[in-house]
Design a protein around this nucleic acid. Structure first.
Lengths: 218, 218
DNA sequence: TAAAGTTATAAGGTATACCTTATAAAAAGA
DNA sequence: TCTTTTTATAAGGTATACCTTATAACTTTA
């Protein structure tokens, strides 16, 4: 089973995007979501999806969307792992700002082979158990997370991921102190925002942002 | 003046190759050398050279070869700097074997922006003065080097670079203890080989290898 | 159920960077 | 000088991944 080595960069990007954008592994991701994410035309997305399906990376359910098959998911997970590790390297060792690191990691994740990334993981102290940073898939996801928007009142949890990610939301999340790994408690839920407690501090999160913040309820 | 940021990867590769392969900055590098280096057809090389010339990266002297102009040289130098720094990171911090590091650095040098590479330089202790490793161009070359093949008998010098580089020669060079930075003395010159002294040890270098080892005569 | 909105697909086009084959021009060697 | 070799250039082709326009098929909503 491939893990991303030698897989065409463009294919990796699509598989990674499907992984990041999907709501649940089984529910098909509409092609329109991919189009919006990449900023490509529906026709181009459709072309690529056909190719990915023919080459056996995804399941394509016309008029409904796509899901990753085992092969595609393996590549997406490996990609995400490389992405996270480079992100941590950039922030922890090179002091690159978090939001910027995300973008740069997006190119490094393709450039560095698995072997290098694994050595990098060791250099960083194998951050699987995640001291402060981003959850890094070891080879399978080890937690089940819930969207903050859906989290019940009073829920206590750990921020697992920001998905789908974008430079802007990352900046907000950093400002709120909601980086992955942080412990939070949902203290109030309103129409337009959700109030969470982050280390003695109360923060108001707009619902649109709460839609992309995921927590593991503890 | 550009320094490699935003310059098309392929263009950077050509400019870098011209820099590495050239014998002297002024003497045109024949297109056949580029063809051999990349393994591309003469026609393809010619096409690319025309493009590089039109876009103002190089001087093209038909039937003679190419030289870098100031703009092209700046990009090549920045590329080489990024290459060297990633190489050092890979070998020094990730314990990747030298020969392998060269290849991997060849992809990282394109992926990481200048800013990251500069922070990387700081992390590595700004290896401009080069403790043991590879000479890293700061922004201009600060040494004048001679091909070992041409070095006079009895010359004492410091290995500056292996150029043109390839996985195979790097392995040999590593075995001989002739990594860049090492002090050597030319003790004998024969038809087929050159005997150099490297830290108490005498090593016989075949002339073909001596052709790609460069030293700064001290 | 019919209209409106999505999604699919066909057809044709773009740019990049490579390829081959064939011919022309220049340089190098006998 | 003449031939051989090298270098240049023209012509046509490939693959990838994007584009637009137009039409067809399906889904959703009124």
């Amino acid at each position: 089973m491939e893990s991303g080595v030698g897989v065409r960069e463009c294919i990796e990007d699509y598989l990674g995007a499907i992984y990041r954008l999907r709501v649940a592994p089984e529910s098909p991701l509409p092609l329109s979501a991919l189009g919006e994410y990449f900023g490509f035309s529906p026709v181009s997305i459709h072309e690529m999806v056909q190719k990915l399906s023919q080459q056996g990376w995804i399941h394509y359910y016309p008029y409904r969307g796509v899901t990753l098959n085992a092969r595609g998911e393996a590549v997406a997970l490996a990609l995400l792992r490389r992405h996270r590790l480079w992100e941590r390297f950039l922030t922890d060792m090179l002091d690159v700002p978090w939001a910027e690191a995300h973008e740069i990691a997006g190119t490094l994740e393709h450039a560095a082979p698995e072997s290098v990334t694994e050595r990098l993981s060791a250099l960083l102290g194998d951050p699987v158990s995640c001291p402060h940073g981003v959850p890094i898939p070891p080879s399978k996801r080890t937690y089940i997370d819930t969207c903050l928007r859906q989290a019940p009142l009073g829920a206590r949890g750990r921020v697992t991921r920001i998905a789908p990610e974008s430079g802007d939301i990352l900046r907000d999340v950093q400002g709120w102190g909601l980086l992955p790994g942080r412990q939070i408690t949902v203290v109030e839920k309103h129409e337009a925002d959700i109030i969470v407690q982050v280390e003695e501090r109360l923060v108001s999160i707009p619902v649109e942002s709460a839609n992309v913040i995921w927590i593991e309820v503890l």
